Amino acid sequence: MIISQAAAQKHGAGIEITSSRSYNAYHISDDDTHVTEIKAAFEAIGIEGVTKPTGGGSDANIFNEKGLKTVNFSTGMSKVHTTDEFIAVTDLIAITEFVHCYLTR
Rank of each mutant, 00 (worst) to 15 (best):
I87Y: 03
F98R: 01
D31A: 09
L68Q: 02
I17G: 03
D84C: 01
T90N: 10
I95G: 08
K10S: 10
T33V: 12
A60N: 04
E65D: 14
S29G: 08
F42M: 15
T90I: 13
A41T: 02
G46A: 13
T83N: 06
M77F: 11
E37H: 09
S20I: 10
V89A: 07
G76M: 07
I62C: 02
K69V: 06
K10G: 03
M1I: 13
T51Y: 00
K69N: 05
T75P: 04
S58P: 04
T51I: 12
D32G: 07
D30H: 09
A60C: 06
K66S: 05
A60Q: 00
S22Y: 03
T18G: 12
T75V: 15
I17M: 05
T36C: 11
E65W: 06
V35S: 11
F86V: 00
I17F: 07
F63E: 11
F98Y: 12
Y26W: 15
T33N: 10
G76K: 00
T51F: 08
Y23T: 12
N64I: 00
F98S: 00
K52P: 02
C101T: 06
V99W: 12
L103N: 09
G12I: 06
V80Q: 02
E16C: 09
A40C: 13
H81M: 04
T83E: 00
F86S: 01
F73S: 08
F86Q: 01
T82G: 04
V50H: 14
E65V: 03
S74I: 06
N64Q: 06
H11A: 13
F98T: 07
A6P: 02
K69P: 02
N24L: 03
A8I: 09
M1A: 11
A6K: 10
H27R: 05
F73P: 03
V99F: 14
